[in-house]
Every structure is written in structure tokens, then in C-alpha cells.
């Protein structure tokens, strides 16, 4: 549990340091914050293949 809490702390700090303060146009470049209205159905499977 200690490693999970540690990871959460450092990831949150990094995420907030980059994202908080960004303007709307830049935030829309972040895939996690938008729905990709152009992507194809097989795209996620492609990610898995590429891993």
C-alpha cells in the first residue's frame, strides 16, 4: 500500500504541474480529456499490439 500511495503522490504532482494552468486549446490535445471523434474502432487493439 505504501508504494501505491507513493506512486499516487508523485504521479499527481507531475500531472498537476503540467496540466493545471494549461489553456483550453492545449487541454484539448490531451487524449484523456477528450473523446476522439475521428478514431477507428480497432485503434485500441493497435495500441495493445504496439506495446
Amino acid at each position: 500500500m505504501e508504494s501505491v500511495a507513493h506512486f499516487e503522490n508523485i504521479f499527481r504532482e507531475a500531472l498537476e504541474s503540467v496540466l493545471l494552468g494549461m489553456d483550453c486549446a492545449d487541454l484539448k490535445k490531451i487524449h484523456w480529456l477528450v473523446w476522439d471523434t475521428d478514431c477507428c474502432e480497432e485503434e485500441s487493439a493497435d495500441f495493445a499490439e504496439a506495446a
Binding site: R12, E16, C24, H31, W32, L33, W35, S44, A51
Partner: peptide
Amino acid sequence: KFLNIDLEPSSIMNLQDSVDQESLGKVL
């Protein structure tokens, strides 16, 4: 592997014109 996350429709940025920091904090 964590590939992606799809937020529910009212949280996404697609249709927003400005950033509400409180809403962004909840999304994060």
C-alpha cells in the same frame, strides 16, 4: 498496461470554450 481513459460526456473538453479549474480538478 493502461491504454486510455474515456470520461463521461459532461466531463470531456471537446465542446468547452474555457477551463473551469474546479471541474478540471475533479476530472484529474
